[in-house]
């Protein structure tokens, strides 16, 4: 099975895992990830600034927000787009 098809299948099943509440993300990690997904779906860039001001995440304390973001990057659910300090991200296809 070629890589894009496999990635699509993993994405589909990861969505199933999330919606069934079986992933092991904390609530704040989930909110940051959902906010990123919504920005992506709306065709907006996923930037630190837009993520922090999103209705889903704006009440998350700043240190928790950055810890959550770092955790999502560590888990490869999101990736940096551009340099280390660009503040832009893309969602993993997984």
């Amino acid at each position: 099975m070629e890589a894009p098809k496999l990635a699509a299948l993993r994405s589909l099943l990861h969505g199933m895992e999330r919606e069934l509440g079986l992933d092991d993300l904390s609530q704040s990690q989930r909110d940051v990830y959902y906010a990123a997904s919504l920005l992506h779906g709306a065709g907006e860039p996923i930037t630190t600034e837009l993520l922090q001001t999103h209705p889903l995440t704006r009440d998350i304390p700043r240190p928790t927000f950055f810890r959550s973001l770092k955790s999502l990057l560590d888990r490869k659910l999101m990736y940096r787009s551009g340099g280390e300090r660009s503040g832009r991200y893309v969602l993993s296809q997984d």
Partner: peptide, 8 residues
């Protein structure tokens, strides 16, 4: 789903 989760 569980296989992909375990791999991840």
């Amino acid at each position: 789903m569980l296989v992909f989760r375990a791999l991840r």
